[in-house]
């Protein structure tokens, strides 16, 4: 017995990890692929019916809700991630300077990110409440007219962007800050000697040097923002109407409200392809710049 283990020690040590990957990643993906080629409503009495690529044909030819949801997902992600990146980098540069209480401020910055997402979303839901919420009280206190916030189709999605920015800007800050700390000081000193202005030093030296780090942070945020679920399901459930129904919410509804498990699987795989492509494109941007 011991001989066997000794001889195959590499595979013995690798087995648990391999088994985990197969069980927790490959099987679910394979099963989702299988379901996506079937019609199944979750019946305990009748098995899934094979329909070939019908589900995929329906996504691309006969499902306006999918395209609307895709548009909203991209808009939400694009807005949220770009605002977070600009704010996050700016805050990181600020926090990189020496000032009293810097450690405390840095820790405080992280609070929104550490809080439980569902709890945070519930608080925002109360803040947005048009009749009882704090935000309208604040608007009226300064003499402005109240807003319906997330109950108004035309701005609901932007309210959710606000929540996402509030919650996740500090992630970009955190990652950028660690990049800034690791920068060599020599180029900066040389630039000061050469008489570069503060703006030039930031734009031409600091930013290009931390860019690879920022891109990593952006990719993380991009993937997470595309998949945003908790705040939307808690604050608006995709409403009013379908005004905040992103792809993830649509897929969730399709699977768990409408019971169309086969179609939801097809949607999931298409969604996966979209996330994968966007992440790959963003990352290639980093590599291209870094090697040039």
């Amino acid at each position: 017995m011991n001989d066997v283990i000794d001889r195959h020690v590499k595979s013995v040590f690798a087995t648990p990890a391999v088994a985990f990957v197969v069980l927790m990643m490959i099987f679910p993906i394979a099963y989702t692929l299988y379901l996506s080629l079937h019609d199944w409503y979750g019946s305990t009495t009748s098995p899934p019916t094979f329909v070939g690529v019908d589900n995929y044909v329906r996504i691309f030819s006969n499902d306006p809700r999918f395209w609307d949801a895709l548009g909203r997902t991209l808009l939400f992600t694009g807005l949220a991630v770009s605002i977070q990146t600009v704010l996050g980098v700016a805050i990181a540069v600020l926090l990189h300077r020496q000032f009293a209480g810097r450690g405390l401020v840095r820790s405080l910055m992280l609070l929104p990110m550490i809080a439980t997402p569902v709890a945070v979303a519930l608080v925002w839901r109360l803040l947005f409440q048009p009749e009882l919420g704090l935000l309208n009280d604040m608007l009226m206190a300064v003499g402005l007219s109240p807003s319906a916030w997330v109950a108004d189709s035309s701005i609901a999605l932007f309210c959710l962007v606000l929540v996402d920015v509030w919650e996740w800007t500090s992630l970009i800050t955190l990652v950028t800050l660690s990049g800034l700390v690791a920068l060599p000081t020599e180029p900066m000193e040389a630039a000061v000697v050469d008489g570069a202005s503060a703006w030039q030093r930031f734009w031409l030296i600091t930013l290009p040097m931390v860019r690879p780090v920022i891109v990593i942070a952006v990719v993380f945020r991009l993937i997470e923002a595309l998949k945003t679920f908790d705040p939307i399901i808690v604050i608006t459930q995709g409403g009013p109407g379908f005004a905040t129904e992103t792809l993830n919410i649509y897929i969730y509804n399709t699977a768990f409200q409408y019971q169309q498990l086969g179609y939801a699987s097809a949607l999931l795989l298409v969604f996966f392809a979209i996330v994968f492509t966007l992440a790959a494109v963003t990352l290639s941007f980093r590599r291209g710049k870094a090697s040039s």
Binding site: M24, M25, P28, Y31, K227, S265, F272, F276
Partner: peptide, 21 residues
């Protein structure tokens, strides 16, 4: 990063169905 995404995306639905199958 992509395997991580894969896992999170794909696990939600099928994991729930796993026992059903």
């Amino acid at each position: 990063t992509t395997t991580r995404t894969t896992r999170i995306l794909a696990i939600l639905l099928p994991a729930a169905l796993l026992t059903g199958a």
